[in-house]
């Protein structure tokens, strides 16, 4: 106590200066309209800046969660969209196509579930390329599920671990994707070389494909949902003596550039497979 008193006496000047100056500030701000306006403005700018900085920082630290939640939302929307495309009812004549809105009216249950994944390993320059994903059995990934990105197809899941899975890239010699060009079914495969170009076979020569035509997934194999964009026609070749075109397709999703992808798992695959097993023995 004595020490404190001594301190006060020794530094009485500066302490009283600070106290009185603070009192003067208070009086100035409270009883002068002009200074009060200046103070409010300055304080507002300072406080606003501080809050803005804080918001930026917290937003930055929350980016991973934001990305995850957006991916999950995208997956949910995508699975709704895919299911919606599946319920297209043909009535008697092909001229009448009625689209059922599967989102509103629950005509059928969902066809596919969509699982958002990150690509953690990828290659494009090998003969057979693979894509590694950061989701596995624990997240519902199953073999033979398709892998798509927001702008095209990426591959087919082959091996599934508990937390990771390996997918054959579309740049794998064994991958065959059933694709549709102008209503005709063809088979898409990669013949090596340019990693953004695949070859579409089995398109009969009686149709006339044009450069720039869109290639979509057929949905027949249940690996990929129907009507997903694959790419566009960039080259048309009709080998001599063949009845089928060999068409060059530029992929809409460059296989090396996909970071965030979706594993698409068909919910009807087991029932379709059990049906197909019956015919394989006949």
């Amino acid at each position: 106590m004595q020490g404190l008193l001594k301190l006060l006496l020794q530094n009485g000047g500066i302490i009283s200066f600070i106290l009185m100056e603070a009192l003067c500030f208070f009086i100035i701000i409270h009883f002068n309209t002009k200074q009060a306006a200046v103070w409010d403005n300055t304080f507002g700018i300072l406080a606003g800046n501080a809050l803005e900085q804080r918001r930026k920082m917290t937003r930055f630290t929350h980016l991973p969660e934001v990305v995850d939640s957006l991916m999950a939302e995208n997956a949910a929307l995508k699975s709704e969209l895919i299911s919606r495309q599946m319920v297209r009812v043909h009535l008697l004549d092909t001229a009448y196509q009625v689209r059922y809105d599967s989102v509103k009216g629950t005509i059928r249950t969902a066809q596919y579930t969509v699982i958002p994944c990150d690509v953690i390993g990828n290659s494009v320059h090998l003969e057979n390329n693979w894509v590694m994903l950061n989701k596995g059995k624990a997240d519902g990934v199953e073999p033979h599920s398709g892998v798509i990105s927001k702008s095209g197809i990426v591959g087919v899941v082959r091996h599934v671990g508990n937390d990771f899975s390996l997918a054959m890239s579309v740049l794998h010699q064994q991958v065959r994707v059933s694709a549709i060009l102008r209503g005709h079914l063809g088979s898409l495969l990669w013949t090596g070389g340019d990693p953004t170009v695949m070859q579409l076979n089995d398109i009969p020569k009686d149709i006339e494909p044009q450069l720039g035509d869109t290639i979509l997934t057929s949905g027949y194999s249940l690996m990929f949902p129907k009507n997903q964009l694959i790419g566009t026609v960039v080259g048309i070749d009709l080998p001599k003596g063949s009845n089928f075109y060999a068409i060059k397709v530029k992929l809409s999703q460059s296989p090396g550039a996909s970071d965030q992808v979706y594993v698409v798992r068909s919910l009807l695959k087991s029932s379709v497979d059990s049906l197909q097993q019956k015919i394989s023995h006949e």
Binding site: G13, I14, F17, M20, E21, L23, C24, F25, F26, I27, I28, H30, F31, N32, Q35
Partner: peptide
């Protein structure tokens, strides 16, 4: 009619 302004200046100069 400027409450605190002259007082602030005087406190400062006195210090």
């Amino acid at each position: 009619a400027t409450p605190g302004v002259h007082a602030g200046a005087s406190v400062f100069s006195a210090f």
